[in-house]
């Protein structure tokens, strides 16, 4: 795809568009969280969902409440940042990771993994399980980050609804899982509590892809279905950050329908597994 699209007829912003801009500007100025370069169509849907939950009909009324009521802001943060995902989402990705990435990782004495935008942690635990089964987990340190501390706390707890386990088991098996999935959690009432040993080498911490800098050098960066919520400008920024945070021959894993097209460093990567979004930084 080229980037020379025919420019659409320039539309006047609606009043709601203007109100949303003001809301995002207010949140940035007051709370320091920057949503101004989020993909507008999906962000708008989320904002409307929040308005409905708050019983409000105007964005300016939501702005008033968010700026004057910290708890409302917390609810807003959870609603706009949490990503709906599952354990072993796109099992073929995890299978390719086992087959193509694990052999490379075996050559390292110590492995640093950054899971950027980990949301409620489902995919972090998936990776921890995979690495344990491959006998690599003891050499790994996984940095699981998200911009929202409430979502991070949920990730840290490692507790998910029990009713999802049947689905997760299927995905685990398709992803090349080797044991009985139920070994990894304890059922308590309607919850599945994941084994504490999976968390031993995971560090959960707050990091905002829109505003924060690199904080280490990594052998693997995973960021799946997070960039889709950003506009092209913010995607470029984050790709710059990933490139700077990967060591040479480091691995980048993206979501199934994401690509390096918007990365300024597209040519510095090679495709590691055809059909899966696994790339290796070459230089």
């Amino acid at each position: 795809m080229t980037t020379s699209e025919p420019s659409p007829t320039k539309m006047q912003p609606t009043l709601e568009d203007i109100e949303i801009q003001l809301l995002l500007e207010g949140i940035y100025q007051y709370y320091g969280f920057d949503f101004r370069n989020y993909a507008m169509s999906s962000l708008k849907r989320r904002i409307r969902g929040i308005m409905q939950a708050e019983g409000l009909t105007r964005v300016s009324a939501l702005q008033d409440r968010i700026l004057h009521d910290r708890q409302c802001f917390d609810r807003f943060m959870v609603s706009v940042t949490v990503n709906v995902t599952s354990m072993f989402r796109d099992p073929s990705f995890f299978l390719a990771f086992r087959q193509k990435v694990v052999p490379l990782l075996r050559t390292y004495p110590y492995i640093r993994i950054w899971h950027a935008g980990c949301s409620a942690g489902q995919e972090v635990y998936s990776m921890a399980i995979l690495l344990q089964e491959e006998g690599l987990y003891n050499r790994c340190r996984i940095y699981a980050t998200d911009s929202n501390e409430l979502v991070l706390a949920k990730a840290q707890s490692g507790i998910y609804p029990l009713e999802l386990m049947q689905d997760y088991t299927q995905l685990y098996l398709k992803a090349g899982g080797r044991r009985s999935f139920s070994e990894y959690y304890t059922a308590a009432y309607d919850s599945a509590i994941f084994r504490a040993s999976l968390k031993e080498n995971i560090i959960f911490s707050q990091h905002n892809l829109a505003t924060d800098r690199s904080f280490n050098e990594f052998n693997v960066i995973l960021c799946r279905n997070v960039l889709i919520y950003f506009d092209p400008i913010l995607q470029r920024r984050v790709h710059q950050l990933f490139y700077e945070s990967l060591c040479t021959f480091g691995i980048l894993g993206l979501g199934r329908q994401e690509s390096l097209r918007l990365s300024p460093y597209e040519k510095q990567y090679e495709v590691l597994a055809k059909g899966e979004k696994l790339y290796r930084r070459l230089s």
Binding site: E5, M11, A39, S41, S42, R45, N83, V84, I228
Partner: peptide, 16 residues
């Protein structure tokens, strides 16, 4: 994935 239209390009979401 949900498919959404932005002016000039497409965007995806994994919202519920």
């Amino acid at each position: 994935y949900h498919l959404l239209i932005e002016p000039g390009y497409l965007t995806l979401s994994t919202d519920a």
